[in-house]
């Protein structure tokens, strides 16, 4: 039983790519959508972006960063292993428009989260730039894949061991300033909350439409529990059904990052059982 892992490779020291057989998910899924996965019968339900989907073979690709118990368990799966539950697709598809110059900004595993958008934006005829970051060279992922679907890819590392030395936001600022002819019309970002928040602050003065793919804690993913609620402007939204993408200039990032820490004690206890 369960959903078969047909391919499993490490992309970075802490990020694994899993190709999983889940034909039901491939039928209608699109960029921006995710699945909810339970690794084992006593496991937690966790959301993971559908990084790629192939209807013919009925497989989806997940990119998983090991940060806690559930993601570490999943990253330990080899080809031939299986995942207990894969439900989806969930969330809304990204609104992909012809805007001109679109920039995707990804940090860490966030790069995988926006890879499908990059592909779709290119297919719509946009000029697509990708700014992708990692703390050092081995943590920059999907550069080759992105090069195939983007017009320009700008890797960044915090320590300067590869590409631009500095944060993705600094590179974004530069790109916006440089692109006088081919003005940046839209930014889509995914990654750690502080990064998405900083991206929103970079684009705000320019009035560039900016979309962030949010990652609150989820349970069901169907709008039933309200655990994934985020404050967007003056309204409360459920990220699993109303999102996960929202206008980054409206999102209350402080609250989001605060809510993500609700179970830190429990998470640490669970991690202790892994190591």
């Amino acid at each position: 039983m369960g959903y078969q892992v047909v391919e499993s490779v490490w992309l970075a020291p802490n990020v694994r790519k899993l190709k999983v057989s889940a034909p039901h998910v491939t039928r209608n899924c699109g960029p921006g959508q995710f699945v909810i996965v339970r690794a084992t019968p006593d496991g937690e339900r966790i959301p993971l972006t559908i990084g790629d989907a192939d209807r013919e073979s009925g497989t989806i690709t997940l990119f998983i960063q090991a940060i806690g118990k559930s993601t570490t368990d999943l990253c330990a799966l080899e080809s031939g292993g299986s995942i207990c539950d894969v439900a989806g697709p969930m969330g809304r598809k990204t609104d992909i428009n012809h805007v001109g110059h679109a920039v995707i900004v990804g940090g860490g595993v966030g790069t995988a989260v926006i890879y499908p958008q990059a592909k779709a934006l290119k297919e719509k005829g946009n000029y697509v730039s990708a700014i992708i970051g990692g703390r050092s060279k081995p943590y920059v992922i999907l550069e080759e894949e992105l090069k195939k679907v983007c017009d320009a890819v700008y890797p960044c590392t915090d320590d300067g061991s590869y590409g631009f030395k500095g944060f993705v936001t600094q590179r974004l600022q530069q790109l916006i300033e440089e692109s006088t002819e081919n003005k940046v019309a839209e930014v889509i970002t995914a990654g750690p909350v502080p990064m998405m928040r900083a991206v929103a602050e970079v684009t705000r003065p320019y009035g560039i439409h900016t979309v962030a793919s949010l990652n609150p804690i989820m349970v069901d993913g169907t709008g039933m529990c309200g655990g994934c609620r985020v404050q967007v402007g003056s309204t409360m939204k459920f990220a699993c059904v109303d999102g996960p993408e929202f206008d980054a200039h409206q999102v209350d990032f402080k609250e989001l990052s605060d809510r993500l820490s609700a179970y830190r004690d429990h998470e640490q206890k669970c991690m202790a059982t892994v190591k």
Partner: peptide, 26 residues
Amino acid sequence: AGLPVFMGIPGENFKGVYSANEYLTR
């Protein structure tokens, strides 16, 4: 009819505030 209603009062997004659906589902 699974969508929970929140009261709409200030402070509902503090950590430790649950809908009954979330609390019971967990």
